[in-house]
Structure formats: structure tokens, C-alpha cells
Design a binder for these strands. Structure first.
Lengths: 350, 350
DNA sequence: ATGAAAGCGCTAACAG
DNA sequence: CTGTTAGCGCTTTCAT
């Protein structure tokens, strides 16, 4: 079967450019890479040939011979979560600024897809991996370590790579202290199952410590998948509503992130509980939505762009061998932003 | 300078596996690719060697020889916009399901970074490109066409590639008609400069037509960058507030997307204008946030996952040569979701 | 059923 | 300053 010559025109290669310009391929390569030591006249001839043919260097081939790519793998928990979306955007921008291209994989919090995603990234020989969320899965860890690729955990954590994050446990304490100082005595810690990782745990610890320091009991632990009616409360499946009713009712909730906090606020709105009169709510992240007048969520702000910047700078330095040695941890500051969702607890008529 | 042998251990190659298993590299290749015609015993030996060495095929090398990658480029307008974030997530998932890996680039609505991003994608020899937003830039178009790579515009448009989107102009009419039927006579169309593309234009047209059909004047065109006090109103820079004051005041706004709509609602909240009593607002997209009780935005819902699915199926079919020929357009349905942000216009005491 | 050999498009010494 | 040569790690005929 004979194909018409124009039917499947392939991309011009460096050789096409070379013969078109009447030089060798090395010369073309030198021009493309902007190396010095090429006469101005040949440089021009090569440039012309490149434009005429619409030549675009094949990054694959280049990276194959150089044995390293300029692709950065980015593991995201859930792109639909505004916090991750913002982080992803920042990460992409800073990566591009340093000459890297981002390859994302969304894990939905499932360690299966996390593993599959990382496996794909590794097969693509990414230069480094940025975890914006990490399940803690040992297989993922093993795969990455075995492959010896630089890794950074941004706003999440693990002990086998650089970490750039806020002091989550401090954040947990700050938020809880704010609640305690507002007169709350029974505080619950709320998290969403899909996102329960090391950061989540540290926030919980901070919450627990602050309560403990105040001489109060441990927080009730709620694990809830919005918009379900039921939740796992201190290990038992119960109607979520029950937590906020009765004499021992919880009057304040510390959510492990804004999305959970806003979901809870929505739940309260729907069942007719008032925020903050009936329940005070504190979130974590300070997503843009939290600042809307209608939402007004008290929350712990993470400096997203700084996290992304430092994270990228970190992996890039590892990739480029500017930094060696054991994993480092960089902590950035976390800030309490007080809004309408929290208020002083009015003393009960009891 | 002599490097200690273990210092820079390179990734095992197919040759390492071959010698380790005592077979040729072709055989290893056949095993890796799951081809038939390999005896069960050698297959096992190869598998063992692969596991022992932690061998991972180098996708770059494979794709270099096959002259095609399994990477899909995705051009996103603004990942921080929940609509795009949701779309990006869906696109990534459907791509992965069909064996493609997504490589994103965020354009911030700037055609410069769009061009740079597409250029990078092309150099990486992506198998196809999914535009989730397209500025209309002619250089981008030229670069892509010259490279002959399959392209699909999802929820945006251009005439030089497949399109999968809702009928934007119909959406524009639906939303506007809803406003007109609620008694509004002076309607404005609001858009955000960064996102003014073909879809935006079609929505505007739909709005204009509906108003025209109702015997009303053309919509006031507002181009606003939240949270500025000023906006470009029918081509003139004016305080945004003025649009909603005076005898000829606008009583309803059709925003080209939910983010703009919510920003306007926020603006109204801050200056003490009530929604919907003073201004009715309609958005476009139906982002998750729009459904919150506290936001309650009337909007036009786009079937995000279906858009993503059809879009990916479309490019994939082109890539895999299952479909040839001129660009096709697939329209999916758009639905009006009525919420609290729109209401009947109470007749003025005039 | 398995192996040998020829590239894919490029970079990186090294010659000239 | 420019050209030659040898791979990078893999797939793909074509032999055996």
C-alpha cells in the first residue's frame, strides 16, 4: 500500500534543518541551545531554516540522551478542593518560572490511584515529585525511594523527603485556643475521611493539646463525608446532629480544612442551626471562598504562594544538585483569621 | 575524579533485566508489553528479574521510537476558578482511564502564557491538546495547526478543532428570558476581562437576542475585574455602583460565569445592596459553591463530567485514528437552575 | 520461542 | 568555528 507522500508528513528533525541550512546537525543543535561559538551568519541561516520548516526540538529525544527530564510530577489530593486548586496553580507557575513543566495526578485521596499516578510519573522519569497530599502509603514511598527522585511534601508531610508546610499542630492550637478563649468548653474536631493524612493528624494533636492545656477534655473526633446525615463520632456511627444536641452538646467545631468547615456550616444552615450562635466553626486554609461576606469563616490562613514557591525551590535545588543531604523541613507561619463563624459562647440558662 | 560506584546508581535498563534473566532484550520487551509467544518459564524469569532490579520501563525511550506519546496537553484558563478546577479534575480522570497522562498549563487568560504553554506541550510531542479555554490568539492556532496535533475545545470554542460544549448562546437566552419573565427590563451582561473568549461572546449574544425578542434594549455591557470599584461599562470607565443607581438603573445582571456572579453578589453585600431585592443575578456554570444555601445563585448548569468525557473521547479517537475528517461540534445540554439570587422585580413606586 | 540489528531524534565529546 | 561519532533506552522487523 502506497501512501501519498504528503499524507503523513512527519515533524522536521534536526537533520532536516541541518541539510536545509547546509550545515551539520551539531551546528543546528548549538544554535538551538544558544551556545556561543557559532558565527553570526550560520546562526542566521539555521534560524531561517528552523522557521521555514517549523522545526521544534523534540524534548523527548533530548531528555533521553541527557538522562533527565524537566518534568515535575505533582500529586494532588483533590483538585476540586479550592485549596488544592490554588496550590496547583501556584505550583505550576513557579515550576514554569524555573523551567519545569508540571504533570499532575489527582488521587481523590485513594492510595491506589496515588500509587498508580506515582508509578506513571516515575515511568516518565520526572525530575522530581511534589506531593500536595500524601496518603502515607508504604508502596508509594518504596517506589519513590527506590527510584531516587527528589521529593518535596508541600502542606503535607512524611519523613522521607523535604517538607514545606505550616506548623500544623501550632495551627491546631491557635484555632482551638481561640475557641476556648471565647468560652467554649466542648469542642469537636472534624475531618473528612479522604483527607486524613499527617497534616490532619498534627492539627488534631494541636487541638487536643490546647484543650488539655486549658484543663478540658479531649475533643470529640468526627469523621464525616458531606452531605451525609451520619458521621463517625469517636469511632461510632451516629447521626451528626446528635453531636450538637443534649446537655453535653458540642458548641464549637475545629474543622481540619475549610471545605469541611463550610460543608458543616451548610449542614447547620439546612437543619436550622445558627452559626455562630449555636455552633462556632473554625476552618483551616483560608480558601478565597472563606472570606466572602456570606461565608465569613474563621480559619487558619496558610501562605499558599509562599508554600508553593519554597516547595518548588526546594525540589529544584535538589534536582540541580545545589542541595544534598538528609531531608529538610521548612516551616512557614500560619495565621488565625477571625470572622463571623466564631463567637463568644452565651452562657446557658442552666 | 573517580566516583564511587554506588554514588550515582542509574536506573536499571532493559539490558540489565535481560542479562539478569539470561535472555535478550527483545524478550524482555515482549514480556513487558505482554505480547504472546513467550514461554511461561522465561516469562517468569523475566518477571523476577524485573522485580529484583526494580525495573521501570522508560516511557521516554519507548515513545521516542514509537514516535508518539501518551501525554495529553491541557490548557486551562484559571485553575483557581472552581469551574476549571472541576473540569481539570474530570479531564484528568477520563484521560487516565483511556491511558493518557495529563500535562497542564495554566494561562491566566494571557495569550502570551497560552502560547508559551502550547509551545512547551508541542515540544513534548503531546498526543493531543485539550483546550479548556482559548484566547483566540492566532499564533497559538498556527503553532498547533502546523504541528498537526489533534485538538479539542471543551467548553470553549474555535473553528479549527473539534468542539464539545453547551450551546452558549442558548444558555444566554435561557438565563435572560428567566430575568425578563421575572419582570426585569434593564439587564446588564457582566464579564471578567481575563475570560472573554468565544463562549463569553456567544453568551452575550444569547442575552442580547433574548432582550431583543422581548422588545427590550440591548444589555449594558460591563467588564469588571473584581473587586475594583470601577468597571468598563459600555466602553466607558465608570464606578460600578452607578450602573445600579438612578432612574434607569439596571435591576438584573447576567454574569458570564459563576465566579463573576458571586463576586458581584459580594460587591452588593458589601455596599448594602440586597440580592435579589435590589439586583437579581444569574451566573453560568453551576459551580458547587453556587448551590450553598448562603450563596443560592441562579445559574446555567453545564454537565461538567459529560463535557470532559466527550472531549477526551473525541481527541482520543482522533489520536487513535478512529475518527478522521473535518472538525466536529458536539453540543450538550445546558440547564437553568433557579435559586435565591433572582426574583420578580417589585414594581417601582414611580 | 528467542535473538540480532537497525534505528527514533537528539546531545556530547572529540576531531579537524 | 564546524563536522564526526557514539550512544541514551527502547521497539521493531527479520532471522534463527
Amino acid at each position: 500500500m502506497i501512501e501519498s507522500p504528503s499524507a503523513e508528513r512527519r515533524h522536521p528533525t534536526i537533520l532536516d534543518v541541518a541539510s536545509h541550512a547546509g550545515v551539520s546537525k551539531s551546528t543546528v543543535s548549538n544554535v538551538v541551545r544558544g551556545l556561543p561559538g557559532v558565527s553570526e551568519s550560520t546562526r542566521r541561516r539555521v534560524r531561517t531554516a528552523i522557521d521555514q520548516l517549523g522545526y521544534r526540538p523534540n524534548v523527548l529525544a533530548r531528555q533521553l540522551v541527557q538522562r533527565r527530564t524537566s518534568i515535575l510530577g505533582v500529586v494532588v489530593g483533590d483538585l476540586a478542593n479550592p485549596f488544592f486548586a490554588e496550590m496547583a496553580k501556584s505550583v505550576e507557575r513557579h515550576a514554569a518560572a524555573r523551567g519545569y513543566t508540571a504533570m499532575f495526578c489527582n488521587t481523590e485521596g485513594e492510595s491506589e490511584s496515588e500509587l498508580a499516578g506515582v508509578e506513571t510519573l516515575l515511568q516518565h522519569r520526572v525530575a522530581g515529585i511534589v506531593f500536595l497530599a500524601f496518603s502515607g502509603d508504604a508502596r508509594t514511598k518504596q517506589a519513590v525511594l527506590q527510584h531516587q527522585v527528589p521529593v518535596v511534601f508541600v502542606s503535607c508531610g512524611a519523613d522521607w523527603g523535604d517538607v514545606v508546610s505550616v506548623d500544623d499542630s501550632r495551627g491546631g492550637r491557635l484555632g482551638t485556643t481561640h475557641l476556648v478563649e471565647s468560652g467554649h468548653r466542648r469542642v469537636a474536631y472534624l475531618s473528612i475521611p479522604e483527607l486524613e493524612d499527617q497534616s490532619d493528624h498534627a492539627r488534631w494533636e494541636g487541638c487536643r493539646e490546647a484543650l488539655n492545656d486549658a484543663g478540658l477534655g479531649a475533643p470529640t473526633h468526627i469523621s464525616w463525608s458531606p452531605p451525609a446525615e451520619y458521621a463517625r463520632v469517636d469511632g461510632l456511627d451516629r447521626p451528626l446532629l446528635e453531636v450538637f444536641t443534649g446537655p453535653d452538646r458540642t458548641t464549637a467545631v475545629f474543622a481540619s480544612n475549610d471545605v469541611a468547615a463550610i460543608a458543616l456550616q451548610e449542614f447547620a444552615d439546612r437543619v436550622g442551626y445558627r452559626v455562630p450562635e449555636d455552633i462556632s466553626i473554625v476552618g483551616f486554609d483560608d480558601v478565597p471562598m472563606a472570606g466572602l461576606a456570606r461565608i465569613g469563616l474563621t480559619t487558619l490562613a496558610q501562605p499558599r504562594d509562599e508554600l508553593a514557591r519554597l516547595g518548588i525551590a526546594g525540589v529544584a535545588d535538589r534536582i540541580e544538585r545545589k542541595v544534598k543531604g538528609p531531608p529538610r523541613t521548612t516551616l512557614v507561619k500560619v495565621n488565625l483569621v477571625t470572622r463571623r463563624s466564631t463567637a463568644r459562647l452565651e452562657t446557658d440558662p442552666s
